[in-house]
Design a binder for these strands. Structure first.
Length: 879
RNA sequence: GCCCUCGUGGCGAAAUUGGCAGACGCGCAGGAUUUAGGAUCCUGUCCCGUUUAGGGGUAGAGGUUCAAAUCCUCUCGAGGGCACCA
């Protein structure tokens, strides 16, 4: 006997429902709907050639479950997706294959999209965006123009991290702590080059302070704070009497000023400011030292402790506190980029200064009591000594008093310093947004006028990096040579492009008006035949929309202000830990800028941020081709179905923790679904087992709460637990089974839809979306004949995913009897079962416990000192 | 070196946030079914104690508490971030 109702066939039901959902547009977010909005954002992927990683699947299917539950709770949910397709990897991949990046990117996107659809993810595909579309990056460029206009984008000759393999400059954030490039692992070198920078440092305080406004997990906000690295301290001026010059230093320990026995400046500082002051014989020595330390590529210098080196400049500075002159030295242990590039050395109370003083025989004077400075620097707290009027003060308690005194005496002033530096925003690569700037021979740097945006990336035959430090775009005369927007004279375009982080700065806004960008559905790529293939021609056939006449610039942000106001801020943003000090920080900065220029309505873009743990290979190592431990989600979907994969990835472990892949556990999840499928076919009764009904309501409570807290692993566990009870019971009433299938819907959407449509849809009358004011498409839609399966109501199909989320009955979750643990002196000696009404009567519970022979035995002949009762839970006799 | 997170069965883990440690799943063992394999179903599964009574147990050592996986101190170990940041 084969009963079809008992056989779970994911391969058949999954494509069927994916198809029907897509036709029904049931996941479309509705602008301005009256129900509460919920903006759920997952980081949009970079579409790599490797296809979707099971790590993506973990994040996306968990958030998909969250989105589905929120929809069922009547929120107007926006759950969009797009492609972050610019950047080095896309370019390197294209170079490797010898195919133009625009083509490989399109292929990769198609593959990603196919995989996502096969997982049944409920993205609103009508809002799909792509950062490499000129219609999109027009606005990435516009933001740059605004930054330039407000003085936040500037060009400067700076020391940059150069990757010899990728042949480009990198941001500090892209370089690992060992000096290697985070993408390719090549050791980077430092070199000087003219670069575009963004003044993220102007926002440092706000980026720290506004963390108070948002709910980020501790790990994330601490890491951001540390990265910005704000230190409180003071700047102190040291005069150089012989030369009527001065050196300003930053210190976090102004309290040790009396112990400052010499100054040290960075080689860069010395080169710029001191070389001209020193005596002839010192000059040669000094130049030599400076040259060596600067040419050292700074790798050694950046890497931890090495033997201190330095040169005495022969110059003297006046320490205003002790009223004496102290020597000025140069050493590469002082960093040019931090503070002012010069420090006051207090060897008694700083380990580095101590090592330096020991090596060169400089005086070490203790001004804080507590340590033994003959051995090692004392960096702890204590009482100030030998420091004039500060004697007797203690640090760090009296630090503000000291700084106040320093200000009063005119020695210096209170100051902050930051670890974070300005963001190096140019790359010498082809595959990125061109920086919309023009260099005029006469007028200098000129921004491209807004109406001329976008500056389109031209078609190029050779997009390999040149290695000269210039972008490949520099060789395309047709594109580079232009006229100055100001004087009309000869000019050249900026040939650097933006880093791959540029497009993701504002993508969550682009979703809100993707239709207005005119980019959804790959219009650009469909036209991508690269018609002329003329070097320097734009690769898109970008057409201006009808209302976008030439010379008339319509600002998309202002045009869509209402939508932005309706949807922003993002309610929950989910993504990887690895972006904490990169994308997450960058996009907060840019969003704050947009707030300042009144494009967005709130100071912070993301109200809540959570990160997921990575998925490791079954050997516990990072998944990688070279280890041969990569799991392809397609194979798992093919073997067990998308619902099994989704369920497993939620069940595998705590969402924020990394977990190793286990195929056996995947199988366990598949078995669970198969058993459950049978239960729905077999064990539906007229009436629910009373006990089971209680379990159901407990499960509703647990599942609702745990999804909200992103504890997906215990959600799955409690669903399994209920299923086990169900299997052992006499049966579940149809009404209760309908509630249970709704609980399953967010996690295993195809499975739930199949059973819901088969067994429950006809009798349902709750269609919450009828209450929405906006939609016309979304209300039950006609089901055509070609679609078999769904039961219909008046010819309309109502998805389980738009049913109302189950509510538990607080009366039904109370167990009729409760087990109380009974302890004697804190040790468990037995348990008693009591009616739940009795739990609030301590005296009755005490009597019952004492009557219990297993417990009585332990109490015999003892005088009870204390009886601690935790209602409904535990009783402890103490003697 | 500094900052953060974590350490619970053979494995992934759970524990109402201080209240019966090990839910749920995997694996394993025994049984049923099967010509056999697979699949499925039932039973068991922290350790010592043959069973019971009991004892021990959440990396280790202390502490707070009637009560600690959970809080505090130290030690060890793993992971992540920063790193000559004055």
């Amino acid at each position: 006997m084969t009963n079809l109702k008992l056989q779970y066939k994911p391969g058949e039901i999954e494509p069927k429902w994916q198809n029907i959902w897509e036709k029904g547009n049931i996941y479309e977010a509705k602008d301005f709907a009256k129900t509460d909005k919920y903006y759920l954002l997952v980081e949009f992927p970079y579409p790599s050639g490797a296809g979707l990683h099971v790590g993506h699947v973990r994040s996306y299917s968990s958030m998909d479950a969250y989105a589905r539950k929120k929809r069922m709770e009547k929120y107007n949910v926006i759950f969009p997706i797009g492609w972050d397709a610019f950047g080095l990897p896309a370019e390197n991949y294209a170079i490797k294959l010898g195919i133009h990046p625009s083509i490989t990117v399109k292929e990769n996107i198609d593959n990603f999209k196919r995989q996502m659809k096969a997982l049944g993810l409920s993205f609103d595909w009508s809002r799909e965006i792509n950062t490499t579309d000129p219609k999109y990056y027009k606005w990435t460029q516009w933001i740059f123009l605004k930054l330039f206009e407000k003085g936040l984008a500037y060009q400067s000759e700076v020391e940059v991290n150069w990757c010899p393999f990728c042949k480009t400059n990198l941001a500090d954030e892209e370089v690992n702590s060992d000096g290697t490039h985070e993408r390719c692992g090549t050791m980077t070198v430092k070199r000087m080059q003219k670069q575009w920078l963004l003044r993220i440092t102007n926002y440092a305080d706000r980026l720290i302070d506004d963390l108070k406004l948002v709910d980020y997990s501790d790990k994330i906000s601490i890491q951001q704070k540390n990265w910005i690295g704000k230190s409180e301290g003071a700047t102190i001026k040291f005069q150089i009497p012989d030369h009527k010059s001065q050196i300003e230093v930053f210190t976090t320990r102004p309290d040790t000023l009396y112990g400052a026995t010499f100054l040290v400046v960075a080689p860069e500082y010395a080169k710029a400011n001191l070389l001209k002051l020193v005596s002839k014989e010192k000059e040669e020595l000094l130049s030599k030292y400076i040259d060596i330390s600067l040419s050292n590529a700074n790798i050694e210098r950046d890497l931890g402790e090495k033997e201190k080196s330095g040169v005495d400049t022969g110059l003297k500075a006046f320490n205003p506190a002790i009223g004496k002159e102290i020597p000025i030295w140069v050493s590469d242990y002082v960093l040019a980029e931090y503070g002012s590039g010069a420090i006051m050395a207090v060897p008694a109370h700083d380990e580095r200064d101590f090592a330096f003083a020991k090596k060169f025989g400089l005086p070490i004077i203790s001004v804080i009591s507590g340590g033994n400075i003959s051995e090692v620097a004392y960096t702890g707290c204590g009482e100030i000594i030998d420091s004039g009027s500060w004697n007797g003060l203690t640090v760090p308690k009296d630090n503000t008093k000291i700084v106040f005194d320093i200000e009063k005496k005119g020695w210096g002033k209170r100051e902050h310093s930051y670890h974070i530096r300005d963001w190096v925003f140019s790359r010498q690569h082809y595959w990125g947004e061109p920086i919309p700037m023009i260099h005029c021979e006469v007028c200098g740097i000129q921004p491209v006028p807004e109406k001329d945006l976008p500056v389109e990336l031209p078609y190029v035959e050779k997009y390999e990096p040149s290695g000269t430090g210039e972008s490949p775009l520099a060789n395309i005369g047709l594109w580079v040579n232009t006229i100055c927007p100001k004087c009309g004279g000869k000019a050249r375009r900026e040939t650097d492009t933006m880093p791959n982080w540029a497009g993701s700065n504002w993508y969550y806004l682009a979703y809100l008006f993707a239709d207005k960008l005119g980019i959804s559905g790959f219009q650009w790529f469909d036209e991508l035949t690269i018609p002329s293939k003329v070097e320097g021609s734009p690769i898109s056939n970008l057409k201006l929309s009808k209302n976008e006449e030439k010379n008339k610039f319509i600002n998309i942000f202002y045009e869509n202000k209402k939508k932005i106001k309706y949807w922003m801020p993002v309610d929950l943003y989910q993504g990887g830990f690895e972006h904490t000090t990169l994308h997450l920080l960058y996009s907060r900065f840019i969003y704050k800028f947009l707030y300042d220029i009144k494009v967005v309505p709130t100071p912070e873009p993301y109200m809540k941020r959570r990160s997921h743990g990575i998925v490791l290979g079954s050997d516990g190592r990072k998944m990688s081709k070279s280890f041969g431990n990569v799991i392809n989600p397609d194979q798992i979907v093919g073997k067990y179905g998308a619902d099994t994969l989704r369920l497993y990835e939620m069940f595998m472990g705590p969402f924020d923790q990394m977990v190793a892949w286990s195929e056996e556990s995947v199988e366990g999840c598949f078995r669970f679904l198969r058993r459950l499928y049978k239960l729905f076919g077999e064990k539906i009764g007229k009436e629910s087992d009373k006990e089971l009904e209680m379990r159901l309501h407990q499960t509703i409570k647990k599942v609702s709460e745990d999804i909200e807290n992103l504890k997906f692993n215990t959600v799955v566990a409690s669903l399994m637990e209920f299923s086990n009870y169900w299997g052992d019971s006499s049966g579940l009433a149809k009404n209760d089974a309908r509630e249970f299938i709704k609980l399953l819907a967010p996690l295993v959407p195809h499975f739930a839809e199949e059973i819901y449509q088969r067994d429950f849809a006809g009798s349902s009358s709750l269609q919450w979306f009828d209450e929405l004011t906006i939609p016309s498409k979304v209300e039950g839609f006609p089901v055509t004949n070609e679609l078999t399966g769904p039961q219909t109501e008046n010819g309309k199909f109502h998805s389980v995913h738009l049913q109302e989320w189950p509510k538990y009955d607080p009366k039904l979750i109370i167990e009729s009897t409760v087990t109380i643990a009974v302890q004697v002196n804190g040790k468990l000696r037995g348990t008693i079962n009591i009616e739940s009404q009795v739990t609030s009567h301590k005296s009755k519970v005490l009597v019952m416990a004492k009557e219990n022979p297993r417990i009585a035995k332990w109490l015999e002949g003892k005088t009870i000192k204390k009886e601690i009762y935790v209602p409904g839970r535990l009783l402890n006799f103490v003697f």
